[in-house]
């Protein structure tokens, strides 16, 4: 996985450290070790590894984290552009996931 890195400087992840209560759940749910605990607060340690899955924001009890999560599938995004709707796996027969 160390070799596999995607585009840099694109993620919509943002963390409001002021709001963070240090519950430690976001580093536990992050599948790419983007978040770490530093001085009993959450800290973004590897921003460009973020795949915008949204697990951290969903599980933050104080809304300190936000990220625009969504479907990262090309045909779904094209479908979304054409129809003006949010991309969804349901297009194209839903074979890929």
């Amino acid at each position: 996985m160390a070799k596999l890195r995607y585009l840099e400087g694109v993620t919509t992840l943002s963390l409001d450290v002021e709001k963070c209560i240090g519950c430690g759940l976001c580093p536990a749910v992050c599948p790419h070790a983007v978040l770490k605990m530093a001085q009993s607060k959450a800290d973004v340690a590897d921003r460009d590894a973020c795949m915008e899955c949204g697990a951290c924001a969903r599980n933050c009890p104080v809304q300190a984290l936000s990220v625009k999560a969504g479907v990262g599938c090309a045909s779904a995004i094209i479908h979304g552009w054409l129809t003006g709707s949010e991309p969804s796996c349901d297009c194209g027969g839903g074979t890929s996931c």
Partner: peptide
């Protein structure tokens, strides 16, 4: 190139923002 781009939907590490940008 198109087929490879489509594979982004199956990977475990690509972000929707990144896929939108490259597309």
């Amino acid at each position: 190139s198109y087929c490879a781009m489509n594979f982004t939907g199956s990977t475990t590490y690509t972000s929707p923002s990144g896929v939108g940008k490259e597309m």
